[in-house]
């Protein structure tokens, strides 16, 4: 159990360190580490956590880390108390790099903010982060597995069945996209509507 807690802390420390571009960028990192690399949670469990993190107050990244920390440790140990410890560990580890880096930035504030080097690196990082967020969405829709070496053998592509149940899922997804992107509706309202429609349709 101590090994799991340490693994969890190290994972969330890395996630905190490499989150550039806000909460949604963090989701792709959390997903990759927690679902893909460690297999601590399933895709559908993670999707539920994202939904709840979006609906509840507080920054998405913190909500998600707290939730994942609780779920991973309470699933492994079967105890609420250990789960609470897990969520505290994950959240603390997530914040630690921010604290360290922000202290450095406060110290070197004026020299840092307008440097050509910093702007140069950020100009590359921003589009990269856009791609990473896109990947998070794609991974929740389909699974790609390679029989052998990636890119040299043919991949096997399958839908994530828990998230895409039938054609109604695609309709809901398209409607939610339209409502939020063009209709500029509040995400909380869109998620709420999705829940009501789910109750009616399934």
């Amino acid at each position: 159990m101590i090994t799991l807690l340490l693994q969890l802390m190290w994972t969330f420390f890395l996630i905190g360190l490499f989150t550039i571009g806000g909460g949604y960028a963090m989701l792709s990192l959390i997903q990759n580490e927690v679902v893909v690399s460690h297999g601590w949670l399933t895709e559908s469990a993670f999707t539920d956590i994202v939904a709840i993190s979006q609906m509840t107050p507080g920054p998405i990244g913190v909500n998600c880390a707290t939730y994942v920390g609780y779920d991973v440790v309470s699933l492994a140990s079967g105890s609420h108390l250990m789960g609470i410890l897990g969520s505290a560990a994950a959240t603390f580890a997530l914040l630690l790099p921010s604290l360290l880096i922000m202290f450095l930035i406060v110290k070197f504030y004026s020299r840092f903010s307008h440097s050509t080097l910093f702007e140069g690196v950020m100009g590359w990082l921003r589009p990269t982060v856009v791609g990473l967020i896109g990947a998070a969405a794609v991974i929740l829709v389909m699974k790609v597995s390679w029989g052998g070496t990636p890119l040299l053998t043919a991949p096997e592509v399958s839908l994530v069945e828990e998230n895409i149940i039938d054609w109604k899922s695609w309709v809901l997804m398209a409607a939610a996209f339209a409502a939020s992107y063009w209709g500029k509706l509040n995400p909380i309202f869109v998620i709420f509507a999705g829940g009501v429609l789910g109750l009616l349709l399934y």
């Binding site: 994202v50 899922s169 939020s180 999705g194 789910g198």
Partner: peptide
């Protein structure tokens, strides 16, 4: 279970919007 069946595809769409 059925509420979350409706919510999951919505969440995926909501990740694509900020992107």
């Amino acid at each position: 279970v059925s509420i979350f069946k409706g919510i999951r595809p919505v969440v995926i769409a909501l990740i694509a919007v900020p992107m």
